[in-house]
Design a protein around this nucleic acid. Structure first.
Lengths: 118, 118
DNA sequence: TGGTCATATCTGATTATAAAGATATATCAT
DNA sequence: ATGATATATCTTTATAATCAGATATGACCA
């Protein structure tokens, strides 16, 4: 076997879901937003301040998280408050950190492309 | 507040780790490899067959997963066997699926860019 | 109604990721 | 040594995600 590639089971749609689920968590701004919201509801201005990134960027990441059901909103006058909707998100982050704990240095320089650090 | 962006806490390195951790799981081929390996050790040829994707691609994704400590290897003659090193990876995948279960349709069309499906 | 503040969306440019395909390394058998 | 098989790496090229900045919407207040 040199290069080929038999038919195998046809592409699984469920895998794409899992993939996207994790992809949402693979952006630093989004992860930081989640961390902030795990400490309690915040409106956009508060998040912008807490994150230190431009408002447009925060909004677009919030849109992503919201669209995917990680977070929910509530309007109060001019302000829109965001919150984590599923408490298990907290579990997920904890579990990830636990797993990571062992091989943090490795992950830091991972990702198959930038292997200069090795 | 229109666009600005106060200093805030300086950029957290740990967040980048978490981000990368999840990023590894945000590629369909890598997720499929993990799923396969959760059922037991396999060598590259078996994976190539099971996945139905070119060998070079499988190898490069394996390199990524290995580099990041998700999987380990063992040589047996010409063959190299890969296995999941941390059993908690299984927990992680289960938890992700559980959380996803509720908002699968949403995630399917998420990611902030391709919102045509909406 | 006009103005201001909070938030959301759009457009183009930049950067990061992944795919293809060729080629290299390593092990075994003859 | 030679050839064959298994696996890894490299070099483009293509694609997809992110960002910045401008602009739009929507609520409140004077």
């Amino acid at each position: 076997m040199t290069t080929l590639t038999s038919p195998a089971i046809e592409y699984d749609l469920e895998i794409d879901l899992v993939t996207r689920f994790f992809q949402v968590l693979s952006d630093p701004t989004r992860v930081r937003i989640i961390e902030l919201l795990l400490d309690g509801e915040q409106n956009v201005s508060e998040l912008v301040h807490g994150l230190g990134v431009p408002q447009a960027r925060v909004s677009s990441h919030l849109a992503c998280l919201r669209w995917c059901g990680y977070i929910g909103t509530r309007r109060e006058g001019k302000f829109i408050y965001y919150r984590i909707t599923d408490p298990r998100v907290s579990e997920l982050m904890q579990l990830a950190r636990t797993i990571m704990a062992g091989n943090a240095e490795a992950i830091a320089s991972c990702l198959r492309l930038n292997e200069e650090t090795a």
